[in-house]
Amino acid sequence: MTLPTNSVVLQGSGADVDGTIKSYAWSQVSGPGTAVLSGASTSALTASSLAEGSYVFALTVTDNQDAVSTPDQVTVTVNPAPAVTYTLTTTASPGAGGTVGRSPNATSYASGSVVSLTATPAAGYVFSGWSGDATGTTNPLSVTMSANKSITATFTQMPPTTFTLTTTASPTVGGSISRTPNATSYASGTVVSLTATPAAGYTFTGWSGDATGTVNPLSVTMSANKSITATFTATGGGAQM
């Protein structure tokens, strides 16, 4: 038998070739606990309040001449209750807004298990809260499994972050700076290519401000407002203004 069923009926019998059976006597021989016995003086014993483990019960019968039989034993095995498990469904809303990680990562969890959920926003999104079978903004979130649960992590898209790029030629007559792409502002992470082109009689000698070196063209990743100067130096054929 398997818990939560915790009682059993044992049906006994006796025979006497030269008489009749006068009485029955059931008793508990062993077990993990003391069972509650009903009908112990009848042929049918009800044993209840059984716990997990093995019980041994004995039956003796007495005939009409008061002869007592040798005890006949029976073993009752009580199996543990099946483990109760629950499922946990997690959803990111919107799907492109981020991910929901879990630890431990499993398809089902034993009752009472604690699962840690972590909401990780994608680039351009922020985590804004839990809904469904959880609320609030705690992240990571601890979830105790006491039922099947469904939890949604909501992410909110942030307004795009843009930065300006100011370029200056020094001296102004020394040359020019072109940019690709050519725009007044750039989204965060945009890569802009700057090309310094010297005028006649000048040579490009380097970058300064928010860039250094002499690489030309120069790749600039926009992570803040930036100001970059291209310096040109007059050669023998020109005069610096």
Score class of each variant (00 low, 15 high):
N6S: 04
V8I: 14
G12K: 01
D16T: 11
D18A: 15
S23L: 06
S23V: 10
V29M: 01
G33A: 13
T34A: 09
L37A: 07
S38T: 09
T42K: 00
A47D: 11
L50Q: 03
A51F: 00
A51Y: 03
E52V: 13
S54A: 05
S54D: 08
Y55G: 01
L59P: 09
L59F: 13
V61E: 08
V61N: 08
V61D: 02
D66M: 13
P71I: 04
P80Q: 06
Y86D: 03
T91Y: 09
S93E: 02
R102D: 06
T107H: 12
T107D: 06
A110W: 01
T118Y: 03
F127L: 02
F127M: 01
S128G: 12
D133V: 08
T135Q: 03
T138S: 06
S142W: 05
T144K: 09
M145W: 02
M145P: 11
K149R: 12
S150L: 00
I151T: 12
T154W: 08
M158Q: 13
M158T: 06
P159E: 08
P159M: 03
P159V: 05
P159A: 12
P160L: 11
T161F: 00
T161M: 00
T162N: 00
F163Y: 15
A169Y: 11
S176R: 12
N182K: 02
T190W: 00
T190H: 00
T203P: 10
F204A: 14
F204T: 12
G206P: 15
G206V: 14
T212N: 08
T214I: 11
T214D: 07
N216Y: 12
T221I: 05
A224F: 13
K226G: 02
T233F: 12
T235R: 04
A239R: 10
A239G: 07
